[in-house]
Design a binder for these strands. Structure first.
Lengths: 262, 262
DNA sequence: GAACGTCCTTGACCCAGATCAACCACGGAA
DNA sequence: TTCCGTGGTTGATCTGGGTCAAGGACGTTC
């Protein structure tokens, strides 16, 4: 039940430290410029956004926002990874979203957070105070249009995840998660395709379990099984090599071409 | 793999029959006027929508759209209930959305259906050809604003459903579904509150199973168990009476107040 | 009114994944 | 160098819900 204020206070010193190298960042060379909620903005619109934006940093493991707490800002993830989770009174938790760079946090028009947001890695967020952002959104169709597009994408992703949660086996769930992270990572780096895919797994076994509706033991066992069967190769605990993406997609129970949605 | 055209052809006769009593309906006395995607439109905007709209009817059990088929229209559900489902190659299916009156079908900018849409009851839809609708959306912020709001609501609902699918027991899943349908039904009728809630269950046991990631046998057993324990009373197979909503919410594992999202 | 199809219920059994528990690997602090 | 704390693995056992199978309650058709 710690409040946003408390968690912000706890991290104040670090925030100030890191602010030094991010506070004056120019939108023009922002790494998420072309994918975030501001992607469609014209230069003059960007200037106005620039005036109301500020950066905040969080360390791996910190809670950015607690569900139910007042939420007076919205934000884009600039770098790092965060999770959106829901918790039942008895402590059962389910991750309902994975926030990667360019993803949007918060809902215009809503003044309280609906989910816990937790930084999985060190993270930098580009924040806007909610009220000014809402006013600007009303005057700037480019922002609302982009936000609609992003929200529809998230809805598709959530629905794909409902199939995973409701109907897939533990092995298929793990394969699905690895395929998604691998694909997003590949899209991000845009490196010369076709070689075997390698990427860092940014989640602990427990976080994977929360995402997949499993226990961490089952996650561990199924990762070991996929390794044993040659579907993936582990380099340490967190680095994954996928020799054959189609094989992985097969194990995920997906269409061979991986779906046409994205 | 039946195409949209085929399913439309199959139903053409009935469509024409029913069109008689819906084709000239005026937006002004439309039952979903204040909740659908057109809710915020001014009279002149409504007039323009009126020009490009047309009604289509489907009978219970008919497939409205097949996943992957070309989709040249978007639509609002006027009356009746439809489902959005995803299917794996081996036949496993997961419902990913329940479409009630005023809900929106289709995605502007996407030319193929991402999910199967099936009419659960007889249904009437208010359709717009996609291209004109997209053009109109670009010129009419009121439509885009409302669609954003509705999409954000759907995303919240999908995320709540992820918790149900990932972490709840079979009994909790059934109780959650009954609570949601009961609440939506109560909101629709807006009758004098506080008495014991009664409503029709618009889904077969199989559809409930598809929604909840269960088998129909488990659904049947858990419905019987909730009845045996006095949480619900069955009047026939499909009519549900809830003597104590708080008790039902408790069984669903929800906060006693039922959540503050809606 | 018999025969069918659809939807639903109930029972017997089984298994995937949860639970409980022990232990390993690594990194940072004393 | 040992001591912990965190994250991960693996084994033994249990169980919720799946699977397979039989049968009941209807409405509809001929």
């Amino acid at each position: 039940m710690a409040s946003l204020e408390k968690s912000a206070a706890r991290t104040a010193d670090k925030t100030v430290d890191k602010t030094a190298d991010t506070a004056h960042r120019d939108c023009a060379d922002c790494p998420i410029r072309h994918r975030a909620v501001c992607a469609r903005c014209e230069p003059d619109e960007l200037d106005r956004l620039d005036e109301i934006k500020y950066y905040r940093s969080f360390e791996a493991g910190q809670t950015v926002i607690w569900s139910g707490d007042p939420m007076d800002f919205v934000a884009s993830v600039v770098s790092g990874i965060a999770t959106l989770t829901q918790t039942m009174e008895d402590g059962r938790t389910q991750m309902v979203g994975l926030l990667l760079p360019s993803d949007f946090v918060g809902r215009p028009g809503r003044d309280r957070a609906a989910y816990d947001v937790v930084a999985t890695t060190d993270i930098v967020m580009c924040c806007f105070r909610r009220k000014p952002f809402e006013q600007m959104m009303a005057r700037t169709p480019h922002i609302a249009q982009r936000l609609l597009e992003m929200t529809l994408d998230e809805l598709d992703a959530a629905r794909e995840w409902m199939l995973v949660l409701g109907r897939k086996t533990a092995r298929e769930k793990i394969a699905s998660l690895l395929a998604i992270i691998g694909r997003r990572d590949a899209a991000l780096h845009m490196d010369g395709r076709s070689g075997p895919l390698t990427f860092d797994l940014p989640l602990t076994r427990e976080a994977m379990a929360d995402y997949l509706g499993l226990t961490l033991e089952t996650v561990s066992r199924q990762v070991s099984a996929l390794k044993r069967d040659g579907v993936i190769v582990l380099e340490g605990k967190r680095r994954i090599l996928v020799p054959d993406m189609n094989r992985l997609l097969e194990e995920a129970g997906d269409d061979s071409d991986g779906g046409m949605l994205f």
